[in-house]
Design a protein around this nucleic acid. Structure first.
Lengths: 220, 220
DNA sequence: GTAGGCATTATTGCATACATACCAGGATGG
DNA sequence: CCATCCTGGTATGTATGCAATAATGCCTAC
């Protein structure tokens, strides 16, 4: 619903933060890379101030790290940290899923449409767009819960682990992930909470294992 | 004018963020209050830029909220949100405590010293200083774990619920809280993990109930 | 040839200045 | 009398400029 000019009209810092977050998640900005303010400012055609604010926010979220008088760097990833993040995700997402309200037929239809779009993007090999759309879908599913604090935390944690996905080998993850999203939809349609939880846990654990494997293989 | 000590003293935005965070936790800045940039800038004798950056960071952490083109406000508190935060704290702190390494005699002595200091502050009625020192103690205990991501999340969540403490009636909380900290120390000394977990859970739950009571009584 | 020190350069951190959006209150017209 | 529009004031959002700090490369001495 297009409403008031709230969204993008002036919140440059916010949009830039999301852009950078996406680029990090996509692996365009790999871990350890220094994010220089002037460079980003020119890239987005703004001054350094909103860029700094965006970087500060991302630093608070843990996506980038800040060395005083040295700059901002994409946060390094260790397999150990990944395990911790997935552990918390398991716990928090469990709470979120336990509290979601079943979607109305209209909502369900919208979610199915999204899922189909995901599948199409995957089949056509548009991994970048797929990743973005995937995050959106997750957000919509979580937001079926009215427990806003829980949802907010779950989304933060998701963005922290999403960074890793670009490291996982695409061929393997694809087919099964699409399948898992279809399973989620079915669980939602059937209003089967136990199944929903199980699908999420299995999916998350599978991704985690692939990821940890990749990290360990790279000595991270 | 304070001279520039090198190292961290030049991180104005960071120090200001912590200052504001403390003031919010102490209840000096109550929920809903608008935090005006010029006012804060004058209060800390700096320009608006580091103030804005501090506020952005606090917004990312959830301590303040940001209305576009309207300003920053201390985050409102509802009993419902409090419950969600305590639920997550329960889960995350459980993980942290499960992963801490038992303190060395030296570390233990330092913790005992801190606890005694807390008790002294409480008895002399210096609630503000007590609250700050309490947070420090919690941080030191959490940091007995090497799982940095978990610790970081736990501390964030702690800062989010600490805001509420100033709403709870001081007389009740005091005596028992000091006692609970002594219990924590004993569990650490005895290296009794189950007991440690239990003490933390009981303490947290007790505070939560007091708090929820206060919030409900005020219609929040 | 290498290690160390000094000057240069580049980048961050903060302050100042300007542009823009929001809100309250009153004038105006129905 | 009420609704609408305008307008002044205030606070936020962004751009630019300057000072301080860390990185870099060169030069010199051994």
């Amino acid at each position: 619903m297009a409403k008031k000019n709230h969204d993008r009209s002036t919140d440059i810092a916010g949009t830039i933060a999301e852009k950078i977050s996406e680029l990090v998640a996509l692996g365009v900005y790999p871990p350890g890379l220094q994010l220089q303010q002037v460079e980003l400012a020119e890239k987005f055609s703004v001054s350094r101030v909103p860029v700094r604010e965006a970087l500060k926010r991302l630093a608070a979220e843990g996506i980038v790290e800040h060395d005083l008088n040295r700059g901002f760097f994409v946060a390094q990833l260790s397999s150990d940290e990944a395990r911790q993040l997935y552990r918390i995700r398991h716990l928090v997402e469990g709470e979120v899923l336990a509290s979601i309200e079943w979607p109305s037929p209209t909502q369900l239809a919208a979610l199915e449409k999204e899922t189909d779009r995901l599948e199409a993007l995957m089949k056509s090999g548009k991994h970048a767009q797929w990743a973005i759309a995937h995050r959106e879908l997750m957000r919509k599913i979580f937001e079926l819960s009215s427990q806003k604090v829980l949802v907010r935390e779950a989304l933060r944690l998701l963005s922290l682990t999403d960074r890793y996905r670009s490291l996982a080998p695409p061929p393997q993850r694809d087919a099964r992930n699409v399948a898992s999203e279809q399973h989620v939809l079915k669980a939602l349609a059937a209003r089967d909470r136990a199944r929903l939880l199980r699908v999420f846990d299995e999916d998350r654990t599978r991704i985690e294992e692939q990821l940890i494997g990749s990290l360990v293989a790279r000595g991270m």
